[in-house]
């Protein structure tokens, strides 16, 4: 009997772990808040919401880092810009005074999310336009420097809470849905994450995605083919920043609080760890990485207040023994770049 026949069960269903995951995951994710309710532990839904939101950020970073080879150490900046867009629009909505005198505030999610993506996209365009003139370690340092500049800018913005951050008293509203209900908000995030990941998977396999992957593998080759490298990198960087901004906007809604800490370099580092942990340049890698990192943090923090001492070596071990990330446990192909 050949291998592929062996991998099929009695019903002819493909039983390879990667495929099985695709079938099981949606069911588990959809049932999760109801199981949490049944267990009487609402914190499960809260935890899952956080993971789902950070999946969006990690997958977005992965477009730049894993597929495009742009090792950005400043993606927390876009998370923060997304979050602050929600926070600032809300505070202007409450105060009734337009932002900059002409942009009216709002608490409508259908407006705040696109606004957050536009704002973070513009931030990514500005930071990318300058940073992408460099490469290698310089690029890492410059993106880090820009993110820290934004961090200190928001620390100094007393009108928006300074280093205390600002509270968003109520989650942004959606027509027909009650976003204040944690289960509803979880599903809103889940649908957005699925949509964003779906879009990224199309992008990665499109003409644009192939050029981006080519640039990662050999800039000289792509240049000699006649590709204006800089434009493609910048476009990918902007898309990546927009997705991270979307995650930031959801995070601001989720915790009803935004602060400069969202832009801190440790947050950039955490996003990078998620991508590397899960598998660089794979579609599902960042998802697994986000789930693993936040899950581990939560479990270890429940055990001991010195959880970081356990977390550090654990991460090192995972990266040593699974150099292609957690994704390689689930699917043979997850380690490759074809997603």
């Amino acid at each position: 009997m050949d291998r592929s026949a062996l991998q099929r069960g009695a019903l002819g269903v493909d039983l390879r772990p990667g495929r099985a995951l695709w079938l099981v995951a949606p069911v588990v994710l959809a049932a999760l808040p109801f199981v949490a309710d049944a267990l009487g532990d609402a914190s499960i839904t809260t935890l899952a919401t956080r993971i789902v939101i950070l999946c969006i950020a990690a997958a977005s970073l992965n477009l730049a880092l894993g597929y495009g080879g742009m090792v950005s150490f400043g993606h927390a900046a876009f998370l923060g810009v997304g979050g602050y867009t929600v926070g600032m629009l809300y505070s202007h909505f409450v105060a009734g005074a337009p932002f900059l005198g002409f942009v009216p505030g709002t608490d409508q999610m259908l407006l705040t999310l696109p606004a957050a993506m536009i704002a973070s996209g513009l931030a990514a365009a500005a930071i990318g336009a300058l940073s992408l003139r460099t490469g290698g370690v310089q690029f890492i340092m410059i993106t880090l420097a820009f993110a820290q500049m934004l961090f200190f800018l928001f620390v100094s913005l007393k009108a928006y809470g300074g280093d205390d951050g600002m509270i968003v008293r109520r989650r942004n509203a959606l027509p027909f849905l009650d976003t204040r209900n944690d289960t509803t908000f979880y599903f809103v995030c889940l649908v957005l994450a699925a949509a964003w990941l779906g879009l990224l998977s199309r992008i990665v396999g499109s003409r644009f995605g192939l050029v981006l992957g080519g640039i990662r593998q050999s800039e000289r080759r792509m240049a000699a083919l006649g590709v204006p490298i800089y434009r493609y990198k910048l476009a990918a960087f902007v898309i990546s920043g927009m997705g991270t901004g979307l995650a930031g906007a959801l995070l601001g809604n989720f915790s009803r609080f935004v602060s400069p800490d969202m832009m801190h370099w440790t947050q950039s580092g955490e996003l990078m760890i998620m991508v590397i942990l899960g598998g660089v340049g794979t579609l599902m890698g960042p998802v697994l990485g986000a789930a693993a990192l936040i899950g581990l943090e939560t479990v270890l923090a429940g055990w001991t207040e010195h959880w970081q001492v356990v977390m550090g070596p654990l991460l090192v071990l995972i990266v040593l023994y699974l150099p292609r990330g957690l994704g390689s446990l689930v699917s043979r192909k997850a380690g490759g770049r074809h997603g």
């Binding site: 199309r202 992008i203 499109s206 003409r207 644009f208 995605g209 192939l210 050029v211 992957g213 080519g214 593998q217 050999s218 000289r220 080759r221 792509m222 000699a224 083919l225 006649g226 590709v227 493609y232 476009a235 490759g336 770049r337």
Partner: peptide
Amino acid sequence: QLLPDETALDNVALAVQVRHGHSFRFW
């Protein structure tokens, strides 16, 4: 200077793609 993760055909197909015009096609 080739794309080491890709197949021979992928390498050439990408060259054909670039000659066909810009690659700002995302879907």
